[in-house]
Amino acid sequence: MTSVTIVTGGGRGIGAATARRLAADGHDLVIGYRTDHAAAESVAADVRAAGRRAVTVAADTCDPEQVRRIFDAADRLGPLTGLVNNAGVTSPIGPFTDLRAEDLREVVDVNLVGYVLCAQQAARRMTAGGAIVNVSSAAATLGSPGEYIHYAAAKAATDTLTVGLAKELAPRGIRVNAVAPGIIRTDIHARSGVPDRPDTAAGRIPLGRAGEPDEVAGAIAHLLGPDASYTTGAVLRVAGGL
């Protein structure tokens, strides 16, 4: 059976690396993105060069109708077998007392509400053998004091979503897992106002360096694949020892 997998936030960072890795593993891809059409199309071109089909869909994962559009695009490729819930945002790093309400709402909307809406569509459409991987964060257990506690809290909710949904969907033969990356070398840090964070934080990471997107993509591919056929409700930490 052909694997048809949706990757949200698939135009950059971990999502782009995951799409390329899954193409190499034989998946056809729907690449969701919010604004950067050129980046998403570049990833899609790499997928096609690997011999797989790729469709890009511009969508805000906080909007149920736009989420449905991503999943409808997947239906046109074939029965949905995989979802990588990856679209996420941070906000400026700083003390909790300086957190702006608009930043809080965006972080919760994208990192939690968006994940729920996408997982709901996947749960409605998948059959036995399907798999969902939520991209969480090591922040969920570290708390991120002095940086972005609200982001950590949203990612902790992602872990709970993973565990609960895994139990609910297990009788249908659908697996749900998460990966929890640590500090990974992507452009998400620029959004937080600290673009050099992967380098400045290296000293507090036990392995002594930031991670690379491909290292997270490998973990996601494992959880979607047959070697993880008895794994559900797990949160796999990919954080260099943090």
Score class of each variant (00 low, 15 high):
Ser144Gln: 02
Ala178Thr: 05
Ala201Val: 06
Ala128Pro: 08
Leu207His: 08
Thr56Asp: 03
Ala24Glu: 14
Asp60Glu: 09
Leu161Ser: 01
Ala190Ser: 15
Gly82Leu: 07
Gly26Pro: 04
Ala123His: 04
Leu169Asp: 09
Leu223Ile: 10
Pro181Trp: 01
Ala54Leu: 10
Thr90Asn: 09
Glu215Ser: 09
Asp75Cys: 06
Ala228Asn: 08
Asp196Pro: 00
Pro226Glu: 15
Asp36Gln: 08
Gly193Lys: 05
Glu102Tyr: 00
Leu169Gln: 11
Ala153Leu: 07
Leu161Trp: 08
Asp46Tyr: 01
Thr127Gly: 15
Cys118Ser: 14
Ser192Trp: 05
Thr231Gly: 05
Tyr230Glu: 08
Leu99Glu: 07
Pro198Met: 03
Ile31Arg: 03
Arg172Met: 11
Asn111Ala: 08
Ser144Asn: 12
Arg21Cys: 00
Ala128Asn: 08
Ser91Cys: 09
Cys62Gly: 15
Ala140Ser: 15
Arg209His: 12
Gly218Asn: 12
Asp46Trp: 08
Ser91Asn: 02
Ala178Gly: 10
Ala87Met: 03
Val238Trp: 07
Asp196Ser: 10
Ser3Cys: 06
Ser42Pro: 03
Gly211Asn: 03
Ala122Tyr: 02
Asp36Arg: 13
Val57Asp: 03
Gly208Met: 09
Ala178Ile: 00
Arg20Ile: 11
Gly130Phe: 08
Arg105Leu: 12
Arg21Ala: 11
Val43Glu: 00
His222Glu: 01
Arg185Ser: 10
Ala210Gln: 02
Tyr148Asn: 10
Ala154Val: 03
Ala140His: 03
Ser136Leu: 06
